[in-house]
Design a protein around this nucleic acid. Structure first.
Lengths: 133, 133
DNA sequence: CAGTATCCTTCGCGATACTG
DNA sequence: CAGTATCGCGAAGGATACTG
């Protein structure tokens, strides 16, 4: 019943905390993979290039803890575990896509700005040490 | 002229890279502060509670490098430096607010899920060591 | 297959001191 | 006021080995 439309300082920390979830190295990529439906552990591992077994486990635990994914164990041999986005997870995915689209849309602008910035830094160095060239 | 609506693998890394900007500890908070207009260095420092001088400098440099803020130096004594969002920076702020709103909206759901998860973990421990209680 | 446990490295970040 | 330079810690994350 707390008025969520009123911004109190507490919200800032909460938002930052949740943003750090999104900002961590793997969560978003894992969530995106599950967007297409339930996935098994090694299926995710192959889909998310570069992730280690350890980090996939930790990432999935974190997402499960926050109620973003469900973990379903089928006690077969060999064992089978399915991970699936919850409603909350789906809604996060949608929101995150907004950011993803922004990134793709402005990718070139950013890369260009970066090159300009780096280049202008080099110029300053050249002015300090004209004999460097 | 590259078809930005077609997803090639390269985009994933770019998106991740830009998401990590958003996910870092201070960038978003600094950007939000500048949303209300140009700000001076120490003004930002006071507004963003907990940030160190070093991190504010690094954060601002990063944002400037990516073309998200401009840095204007007034060669007065004492020196005065204004930081201001660019158009690109403003558009990022808008997008990030989407995520912020999501976080505020689902804050309680997440916290509840967390408590449930942590509690169920304790139960399992109790079952393994019934004498622990 | 789906993990857990352990070790080890890298790096983000804070604290502190100094400068134009 | 607005930085830069240096040091050190703790957490994040990778590699590897082992298990039900």
């Amino acid at each position: 019943m707390s008025p969520s439309h009123i911004h109190v300082p507490t919200d800032c920390r909460t938002v930052t905390e949740i943003l750090s979830r999104v900002g961590d190295k793997w969560s978003v990529q894992v969530v995106v993979q599950m967007g297409e439906g339930p996935k098994r552990f090694n299926e995710l591992r192959r889909a998310v290039t570069g992730i280690s077994q350890r980090m996939l486990t930790l990432t999935l635990r974190g997402l499960e803890r926050d109620g973003l994914v469900t973990r379903t164990v089928y006690p077969t041999i060999p064992p089978r575990v399915d991970y699936q986005l919850t409603g909350l997870g789906c809604s996060l995915l949608k929101t995150v896509r907004g950011l993803g689209d922004w990134a793709i849309e402005h990718r070139d602008e950013i890369l260009t700005a970066r090159r300009r910035f780096d280049a202008s830094g080099d110029e300053e160095l050249d002015r300090e040490r004209p004999d460097a060239a």
